[in-house]
């Protein structure tokens, strides 16, 4: 189980990286943390002609606050997202979602950009970006583009980043008084979710505003479900209404089926995850659960 032959280049700047991508186009594959790409290479499920290793691009490794936004460089390792004090303060839901990725040693290597560009439908970070209404920056030969997270994910393992482009940054709006919940169900701790949900809202004078409900692992991409968001925002949420939000979230949902979950069971999981994430958010509002205690699993 060894990779097929390829050539290797390790650019030292974004320009060099783009030049390499421009030159080798479809033949090239970007290597970031390698936690998704390397298994595919080892199994020869992907056989690129050139591997462009971007780990030398230190300029893409950062977390900064710029006004009301948090800017995160694509090469920032996942473990930093879960530990970084600023993230825990300003967008704690991101830290909580990140903790659900694989195992510690996966997160020491994996990058935020790699997870987003890989666009696994069951991955946490794409869902978190949709929930946080992040904007993604992609640079290519003709300059840079800004893409809303919900538009970036176009299908299973299919993100809006062309072979000659590089995802460089995500920008996350910071919103005050947020309450949230992240839940997912896995058979084994650390596995990809069979279904997961992120619920997020802001408390404005006793009202829930800007509610967001995102499902992951259920269809071919993370899914913002507007009827559920409407239900979430309509009134001050109570325990009983969480079930209503959950029902709205899965109404008409056509989940995919795989080895571990039939479509119907997956739908049930999605419903339960939304409900539990809502209840976490309610508990947070009521001060019953501190943000630090949110582990989020099942």
């Amino acid at each position: 189980m060894k990779p097929a032959p390829f050539e290797y280049i390790a650019p030292e700047s974004i320009e060099q990286a783009l030049a390499a991508l421009a030159q080798y186009g479809d033949e090239a594959k970007i290597l970031a943390g390698g936690q998704s790409l390397m298994p595919l290479l080892n199994m020869r499920l992907t056989t690129p002609g050139v591997v462009v290793d971007i780990n030398g691009l230190d300029e893409l490794n950062y977390i900064r606050q710029q006004g009301e936004r948090l800017h995160i460089g694509a090469l920032t390792r996942q473990y930093r997202l879960e530990r970084d004090a600023r993230i825990r303060q300003t967008v704690p839901v991101l830290a909580a979602a990140t903790r659900l990725i694989g195992h510690p040693s996966i997160r020491y290597a994996g990058t935020i950009g790699g997870s987003l560009a890989h666009a696994d439908p069951a991955a946490e970070l794409p869902a978190a970006m949709c929930a946080l209404e992040a904007e993604l920056t992609v640079v290519g030969p003709s300059g840079s583009r800004a893409i809303q997270a919900v538009d970036f994910f176009q299908g299973a393992l299919n993100a809006d980043v062309r072979p000659d482009e590089l995802l460089t940054e995500v920008r996350i709006p910071i919103r005050k008084n947020a309450v949230w919940g992240v839940r997912e169900y896995t058979r084994r701790a650390g596995d990809f979710a069979l279904a997961g949900a992120i619920v997020l809202a802001e408390i404005e004078a006793d009202r829930w505003a800007n509610g967001r409900v995102v499902l992951f692992g259920v269809e071919d991409r993370p899914l913002r479900v507007s009827p559920a968001e409407a239900a979430l925002t309509q009134q001050a949420l109570s325990d009983g209404q969480a079930a209503g939000v959950a029902a709205a979230a899965v109404n008409g949902l056509a989940c995919h089926a795989d080895l571990h979950a039939s479509a119907e069971y997956r739908k049930q999981l999605a419903r339960v995850m939304v409900k539990r994430a809502c209840l976490d958010a309610v508990a947070m509002r009521d001060g019953k659960k501190g943000q630090e205690n949110m582990t989020g699993s099942a």
């Binding site: 084994r188 650390g190 990809f192 080895l259």
Partner: peptide, 27 residues
């Protein structure tokens, strides 16, 4: 957790440890 699964026509479905679920400490 563990089962080696095939389709009715004999295609093998549990070819990796992402599908063949050996329990970890947490299970």
């Amino acid at each position: 957790y563990e089962e080696l699964r095939y389709t009715e026509t004999g295609d093998f479905l549990t070819g990796t440890l992402m599908d063949y679920l050996c329990p970890t400490l947490n299970e």
